[in-house]
């Protein structure tokens, strides 16, 4: 599977309060959440982000609250994937559960600049920077997480299991 898009960069410890602030958690409407995605990290982000764009962040992306609204808002805003040095564990689970592709690659985080256009080759674990014409590898997706992706997320996986 290939994801291609323009890169938006963020720092380390981007917590879920900044991905989607609690003042918007009185709804679970995806469109409404998307309209405020990353607002407290970059107030213009919801206006700037285009379908297919890719977020690149440093360590511990998605730390803090368990709110699934965070990966939902990112996905609903059209972001095709998130690359980080590391992910907080609840965010990591949530992303796979709802089908937001995420990749771990410290070298890509350091080697790719904001505005670069990149292509993620998920099957081969390769991240190509089409702007700078170089490439990076991402950590392989664990087998069980791949099984969840193949099933179409945790709900579909669960349906098959109990069927």
């Amino acid at each position: 599977m290939l994801f291609r898009g323009k890169v938006w960069k963020f720092g380390k410890n981007i917590d879920t309060d900044r991905i989607i602030p609690a003042r918007y958690l009185n709804t679970s409407d995806e469109g409404e959440l998307a309209r405020h995605v990353m607002e407290d990290a970059d107030v213009d982000f919801p206006n700037k982000v285009q379908k297919g764009d890719i977020i690149i962040a440093e360590d511990n992306f998605g730390c803090g609250s368990s709110r699934e609204h965070a990966p939902i808002a990112i996905k609903a805003a059209g972001v095709s994937a998130v690359i980080a040095t590391s992910f907080a564990r609840i965010f990591y689970r949530n992303a796979f559960n709802i089908g937001l592709p995420i990749f771990i690659s410290a070298e890509a985080v350091h080697g790719i600049k904001e505005g670069d256009v990149i292509e993620i080759d998920a099957d081969n674990g390769v991240i190509r920077n089409l702007t700078a014409e170089n490439s990076f590898t991402s950590e392989p997706i664990p087998q069980f997480m791949q099984e969840l992706i193949n099933a179409g997320g945790l709900i579909e996986w669960t349906k098959k299991k109990i069927a």
Partner: peptide, 14 residues
């Protein structure tokens, strides 16, 4: 341990 809503949903079922 904390999880997200979808994990909670699957566990509520199974």
């Amino acid at each position: 341990t904390g999880v997200g809503s979808t994990d909670a949903a699957a566990t509520m079922a199974t």
